[in-house]
Simulated assay, not measured.
Amino acid sequence: MSVVSVSMPEALLERIDQFADEHGYTGRSEVLREASRSLLGEFQDDRLDGRPLMAVVTVVFEYDSPSVEEAMIHLRHEHEEVVTSSFHSHVGDHLCVELFVLEGSLDDISTVVGEIRATDETLTTDYSLLPVDDVGPFAELE
C-alpha cells in the first residue's frame, strides 16, 4: 500500500483521530481511506447517469471571508449553464449561507459541486441530488 502525505489543519486532524477512536477504526488512515472511497463514489450512481438532474447545494462560510463570497460569484458565472439560481443569506452574527440550484447532467453537477467544495475557507458544503425526468427518482428500484 502506498503512503501519502496530506496537509490539513490541526483541528481537522484532531477530529479525525477522535472519530477513529469513537467509531472503532484502527487509525486515521482507515478513516481517510473510507472517506475517499465514499467521496469518489458519490457521483458514480449508474441509476442517475444519462438522466436530467437537479441539485440543491448549501455552502456555509464565515461572514468575514470575502474571498469565499467572491469565489461563489465566480462559480455562478463560470457555470451559468448549470446554475439555475442562487441565494445568499446571513445566518446568526457571523455566518453566510449560499444556496445554489443546479440543473444538468451528473457530470456537470459533479463538476460544480467539486469546485464549490474545493473553495478555501468554506465551513461546510452539502447537497441533495434528484432526477427530474418523467421516470421518477429511482423508478427502476420499485
Rank of each mutant, 00 (worst) to 15 (best):
V112Q: 12
G27P: 00
D108Y: 05
E42A: 07
E140N: 14
S128W: 12
S89R: 14
G50R: 06
V91W: 11
E34C: 04
D64G: 05
R28N: 04
R33G: 05
M72Q: 07
L130I: 08
L48G: 00
D120S: 15
G41N: 02
V82Q: 04
F19I: 09
R15P: 06
L13Q: 14
L141T: 13
E98N: 10
H79W: 03
L123A: 03
H90L: 13
E14L: 10
Y63H: 15
T125S: 09
M8K: 01
A20T: 11
E70A: 14
L102R: 05
H74E: 12
E10V: 09
G136H: 11
R51I: 13
A71P: 13
E103F: 01
S105N: 08
V3A: 09
E69H: 08
T26C: 03
D133F: 04
E42S: 07
P52H: 05
S110K: 11
F43C: 03
S38V: 08
L12S: 10
D120M: 14
L53D: 03
S110R: 12
L12F: 09
R51L: 12
V82T: 12
D93F: 10
R28I: 05
L13W: 09
H94F: 01
S36L: 11
L141Y: 10
Y127E: 06
F43T: 05
G114S: 05
I16N: 03
R28F: 01
R37W: 06
A11H: 12
R15A: 13
L95S: 09
L141M: 15
L141Q: 13
E62G: 14
Q44N: 14
Q44P: 07
E121S: 15
E14S: 13
A20K: 08
D17V: 07
E22W: 05
D107N: 10
Y127D: 04
P66W: 00
F100L: 13
T58P: 00
V60H: 02
V113K: 01
L130E: 05
F43R: 08
P52A: 02
E69G: 13
A71D: 15
Q18V: 03
L95N: 12
F138V: 14
F43S: 06
L99C: 06
E34Y: 01
G104A: 02
A20S: 11
M1T: 12
E62W: 13
V60P: 02
T58S: 11
T119I: 05
L48M: 09
E115V: 01
I73Y: 15
Q44W: 10
S36Y: 06
G92N: 00
G27T: 00
S110T: 06
D17G: 09
E14I: 06
G24L: 04
D21H: 04
D133E: 03
D120K: 15
V112G: 11
L95A: 10
L53Q: 05
E22A: 11
D134C: 00
V4G: 00
D120V: 15
H90E: 14
V4T: 10
A20H: 10
S110N: 08
H79Y: 09
T58F: 09
E121F: 11
E30A: 01
L129S: 03
S128N: 12
P52D: 02
E42H: 03
